[in-house]
Design a protein around this nucleic acid. Structure first.
Length: 229
DNA sequence: AAAGCACAGTCTATTACGTCA
DNA sequence: GGTGACGTAATAGACTGTGCT
């Protein structure tokens, strides 16, 4: 109904961002899109590079197509594409540990027949892109959260106006027979009750529960390893 | 101070997909 | 309807610069 469980594994299973995050949010649907990088053209790079490792690319790229036309500027590096197996192993390793110590890096590189630097870069990118996805999710969540709060606020304002129009007695207390007319909603996430009487009662601001922060943001205040997991 | 690492930002090769003749 | 050329967006490998330890 109001809140749906979103599983990253399902949504992003097509690409390789297997974030194992579960977030409950109102009516969320996502279309992940990275900001496309600007095409600022003419940036000629130094071509010292990873792809030139001798005898390592056997199953990553077709070496025989390396031929360059001799008169077309500096040789462009051919982009390495990891095999499915390499990707799988890297993902598996990433799930176990998002950062590698030098020994692990070396071992993984040997296993994958890659340079340690390639493994390192892969992990860097993987961390960065996980974080990006996470941030996008949180952004979407907050947008929806804001919408929900705005709507809730509007409802409460209306109720307040209605109640004021009923001209309560000199001591503003809410009589029992009126209580039934007030809306009382239970937040399905924090299970706190929000009632319009809060607004009426003097000093009732203490229980204005509708503005509670989403749990994952509360958790985020004290950074922990779980944040981007 | 230098080395090593992680991260943010960026570039760019490759791939996927849509459109149109 | 099938097909090839083309444009565009998305993805992912790699790099640079910076800050921290």
């Amino acid at each position: 109904m109001f809140y749906i469980i979103l599983k990253f594994m399902e949504i992003f299973s097509n690409n390789c961002t297997n974030l194992e995050l579960t977030i409950a949010m109102p009516g969320f649907s996502s279309s992940p899109s990275l900001p496309s990088s600007g095409e600022s053209g003419g940036n000629v790079r130094k071509e010292l590079d990873i792809n030139q490792l001798p005898g390592q690319e056997e199953d990553c790229m077709e070496e025989e197509e390396e031929e360059e036309s001799p008169n077309v500027g500096p040789a462009r590096r051919k982009k390495l594409r990891l095999t499915k197996e390499q990707s799988r192993l890297l993902e598996e390793s990433f799930r176990q540990n998002q950062t590698l110590n030098p020994k692990e890096k070396e071992a993984l590189a040997v296993e994958l027949k890659l340079k340690p630097r390639q493994v390192e870069v892969w992990f860097q990118n993987r961390r960065a892109r996980s974080k990006l996805k996470q941030t996008e999710m949180e952004c979407e969540y907050l947008k929806r959260w804001f919408g929900t709060l705005t709507e809730q606020n509007r409802k409460l304002q209306r109720e307040l106006e209605n109640l004021r129009a009923m001209k309560p007695g000199p001591n503003n207390a809410c009589p029992a027979h009126m209580a039934s007319t007030l809306s009382s909603t239970m937040c399905p996430r924090c299970e706190r009750v929000t009632t319009a009487t809060h607004v009426l009662d003097k000093g009732a601001t203490t229980t204005a529960t509708t503005a509670a922060m989403p749990p994952f943001f509360q958790a985020r205040r004290q950074p922990s390893a779980a944040c981007y997991n």
